[in-house]
Design a binder for these strands. Structure first.
Lengths: 215, 215
DNA sequence: CGACAACTTGAACCTGATCAAAACTTGTGG
DNA sequence: CCACAAGTTTTGATCAGGTTCAAGTTGTCG
């Protein structure tokens, strides 16, 4: 599955691996390469002045990341053991000088990431805890690599999910239980879930009541 | 000041104007152009499923925006009357095929926007209301076009600021008063402020206490 | 000056954070 | 295979910060 034909493959590239938890690049570093994730899961994150971590994206096989010509604005870490294709930045730039297709591709990657983050902010700012978790699980489901199976295997820790959703670990834990009791999700082992009800609740719909009545 | 020489000026471009409050482009539209802001202030925003607005960026003269080759992932609206330079997308793409410099420039624009938003999420998720407002004012100060004057003239409404910081209007109003009483800011008319103390408080520093003691 | 929008203030409520402790995993070496 | 230690997740009780709703005030523009 990792052998997608990418327009970037004309650029200089090679495979690299990282262990679970390892830093791929750090915020503030000069960018020398960009990547495609072939296997595993990667998180993009920033660390606030007080040491608070905010995860801004989870990436899955097929996703490109680290598209950057200057200084890294976020750091990337391996959530699981990962396998990536690393493209030399200069080589990619040269290539984009010859083919508009490459330029377009790079920009689309950046756009997608930006659009996702924009909506991510919106969700964090306006959704309550249970809705955030549901929204997160639904987004995971939409990812191509998961569509076939109805059971979601989460590669990331609870801590990671909490830092992604802007919740404390404790609240995330409680909310998970509430959603189970309300029949939204069903546990299948410690990091696997089945989504039972696929309706994303509006702020004050029947579903909202369902969660509350379970509390 | 609006006549910066931009590498993009080799592309087809012309001036356009928009009235205060007008939509420049909407989320979901196909992108046909990108822009440089010459005069005024623009906001980028998304609207959530329940109608909640989240402002993801404020833009000022000299900033480029709308760099997009596909579908708009956020909408852009004029905060004040604005004057912009509109660049035809196709023309910019052609240009980037000839000069890597243009490509690099476009990517840098996108990167900056992404980095800002990443930190924006972090602030919203981890800072309390007074600190968010201070952070916002400090960021405004850093903007080149304001550096000379010590009085900050805010072009946007309270509502806009609240929607940017993920606060309710009411909380923003209260917090503004508290910061004034604590000597952080001083009002100079309804939309103008002077920043008195330039120390950005860590989560639990003296400054934090200062705010609290005023409450 | 009047009407409408923007902004402020007040009081009650409620969600999610915090701190502390218990339960559960995971990995390691005997 | 079990025991132990380190890490992760859960649970409980308490509390504070921010939202909400409603009414007041100020500002702006005809």
């Amino acid at each position: 599955l990792s052998e997608d034909s990418s327009v970037l493959d004309a650029a200089m590239h090679w495979k690299v691996r990282h262990r679970k938890g390892q830093l791929i690049y750090d915020e503030g570093e000069p960018a020398r390469a960009m990547y495609r994730l072939d296997q595993g899961c990667v998180r993009l994150q920033v660390i606030g002045p007080e040491g608070d971590r905010q995860i801004v994206a989870f990436l899955f096989p097929g996703d490109h990341f680290g598209v950057c010509v200057d200084t890294r604005t976020s750091s990337a870490e391996a959530v699981t053991d990962v396998e990536l294709t690393r493209y030399a930045l200069q080589s990619v730039l040269d290539l984009s000088g010859r083919s508009t297709e490459v330029t377009v591709r790079l920009m689309k990657t950046a756009e997608t990431l930006y659009g996702d983050l924009a909506h991510h902010v919106e969700q964090i700012a306006h959704l309550n805890a249970p809705d955030r978790l549901l929204w997160f699980l639904h987004r995971l489901m939409q990812h191509a690599h998961l569509q076939k199976m109805e059971t979601i295997k989460l590669p990331m820790s609870r801590r990671d999910i909490a830092d992604y959703l802007g919740l404390s670990q404790e609240t995330l834990s409680r909310v998970t239980r509430q959603l189970q009791q309300a029949g939204y999700i069903e546990a299948r082992g410690p990091r696997s879930f089945i989504l039972r009800r696929l309706d994303l609740p509006g702020r004050a719909t029947a579903s909202d009541q369902g969660v509350k009545s379970a509390a």
